[in-house]
Design a protein around this nucleic acid. Structure first.
Length: 468
RNA sequence: GGUCGGAUGGCCGAGAGGCGAGGCAAGGGACUGCAAAUCCCUCUACACGGGUUCAAAUCCCGUUCCGACCUCCA
């Protein structure tokens, strides 16, 4: 038996995962700033950490998974002006877009999904603690800053030196003790939303909210903090700074997912528009997009191309096709089981690509067994494959992906109609009237129904793309 | 300037001292009335130059190129 080992950005090594509390895992994942529709880079993070969560759950842990929503920030306020909507309506609109995207990709809803605006009280408490401890200061302009020079462990995650940092171009140094001090809280500007605080009305700084929410739901110390690679600095450094200065042990381990790249570069805003989740879902199903996003190792860059996505979908359909045929032959859905090779791969810092190789092997075994009519082998291969797909969130029998399906009555009626046509075709084939036989097959194909002749007789499936 | 990644076959994508990961595409074959599906075979790659070693895609040194972060970022 292997046991789970995970990489830790803090130590830059892979080490055995030991939870703070036996059988329990607390995870905090930095979620979206809801100011635009999600592109695949955003949901890759969601998918990667969903796979981690599912594997931990499968391994027997009780997982508390917190993923926040940043529903107030500069960009949202700008967008509100641009879209001529209240800022809160903008935030809600895009929060829904993210939720829809997560749902389409079968990303499990977090245990709790806190919004920044709902945790101002906790943020004020945290700032009070920080000021009392002398780590933060309110210079009187309504801002509250964290004094980074006082922190010995600042920048340990990104391994930088404070003096090497380029000072922010837009830093207002009038009130800061050091240009690198960052804002915990921002004073209200005219027309902007604000919340009252002991230091004047204002709104949350980005970093503060995550520290406050992680503390609220996971306590002073928790197991895993996740996010995209680009959050290491400044966001996660600043979260550590705030939380440790407040006296919390904070995250024990840091996991960061790599980007989706296009032409070698991190997805930019302009590219992001064409790679929005809802656009891509016009070309592939959610389960196929998820398969694609999950198939690379979470710490590797994933070079996006429409061709690669299409190929990935083809590969997935082959696996799915085997499972469907296995149900037709065995009459029951496979019972998910986890093989040792899959376990070993996943326990090795979620080596999904290696795990996928074990699926390919089982697939070949299973398909060969179908040809041979070897039901026990078909069953064991199908069980193993379904077990793996379940962990990867790509189980075709998962009700999450069955949503748009027709009712049982309708399916039953449709099957009856097609069987009538197939009986005609079989009769035509028996009298060697292949013209008539092919006419029926072509006719069904035009309706998006594919006919395949197998050793067990003809089978049909809806593959779409029928001519209109 | 500082910090951190990367370069693997037609394409995607693992591996991290010794047994050709895997997938997709392509070609050939089996099966089939044809097709589809499936199976089998073929396609022996690790940016470059040195070095260490019995053995290097993997370790070391150097070089080139690409990318990320440095207070908006998944």
């Amino acid at each position: 038996m292997s046991s789970l080992a995970l990489y830790d950005t803090l130590t830059r090594t892979t080490s055995p995962f030991v939870p703070l509390k036996k059988g329990e895992v607390g995870i905090y994942l930095c979620g979206a700033t809801v100011q635009a529709p999600p592109h695949i880079g955003h949901v890759r993070s969601g998918v990667n950490f969903d796979i981690l969560r599912r594997w931990l759950t499968k391994s027997g842990y009780n997982v508390t998974f917190i993923r926040n929503v940043t529903d107030i920030d500069d960009k949202i306020l700008h967008k509100a002006v641009h879209e001529e909507m209240p800022w809160w309506a903008v935030a809600m609109k895009y929060e829904r877009a993210f939720t829809d995207a997560y749902d389409a990709l079968n990303v499990l809803p977090p245990t709790y999904e806190p919004r920044a605006t709902g945790h101002v009280t906790q943020m004020i408490e945290l700032m009070q603690t920080l000021i009392e401890k002398g780590a933060a200061y309110a210079p009187g302009n309504g801002d509250v800053y964290l004094e980074v020079r006082k922190l010995s462990s600042y920048l340990t995650l990104s391994r930088q030196k404070l003096d090497d940092l380029q000072p922010a171009a837009d830093a207002d140094e009038t009130y800061k003790k050091d240009p690198r001090d960052f804002a915990l809280w921002k004073a209200a500007k005219p027309g902007d939303p604000s919340w009252p605080t002991p230091w004047g009305p204002g709104r949350p700084g980005w970093h503060l909210e995550c520290s406050a929410m992680a503390h609220s739901y996971l306590g002073e110390a928790f197991d895993i903090h996740g996010g995209g690679l680009d959050l290491i600095f400044p966001h996660h450094e600043n979260e550590i700074a705030q939380s440790e200065a407040a006296g919390y042990a904070f995250a024990k381990r840091w996991l960061h997912n790599a980007w989706v790249t296009a032409s070698g570069e991190k997805m930019s805003k302009s590219l992001g528009n064409s790679l929005q989740v809802h656009e891509l879902l016009k070309t592939v199903r959610g389960i196929e997009l998820r398969w694609y996003l999950g198939s690379a190792h979470y710490r590797s860059m994933l070079e996006f191309s429409h061709e690669a996505l299409a190929e990935s979908a083809t590969a997935f359909k082959r696996i799915e096709g085997f499972l469907i045929r296995s149900v037709e032959i065995l009459g029951v859905q496979p019972t998910p089981t986890i093989s040792q090779t899959f376990t070993d791969a996943m326990n090795d810092d979620l080596a999904v690509p290696t795990a996928l190789a074990s699926i390919s092997e089982a697939l070949r075994t299973g398909n060969t067994a179908i040809t041979a009519g070897d039901k026990p082998v078909i069953a064991s291969a199908a069980n193993e494959i379904r077990g793996a797909l379940e962990v990867l969130g790509c189980d075709p029998f998962d009700p999450a992906f069955a949503g748009a399906g027709a009712s049982e009555d309708l399916n039953s009626a449709l099957d009856g109609v097609i069987q009538l046509a197939l009986a005609q075709r079989t009769a035509a084939r028996e009298r060697k009237d292949f013209a008539a036989s092919d006419q029926i097959r072509d006719g069904l194909a035009a309706l998006g129904i594919t006919i395949e002749d197998t050793a067990q007789g003809p089978r049909w499936s809806i593959t779409g793309n029928g001519s209109k």
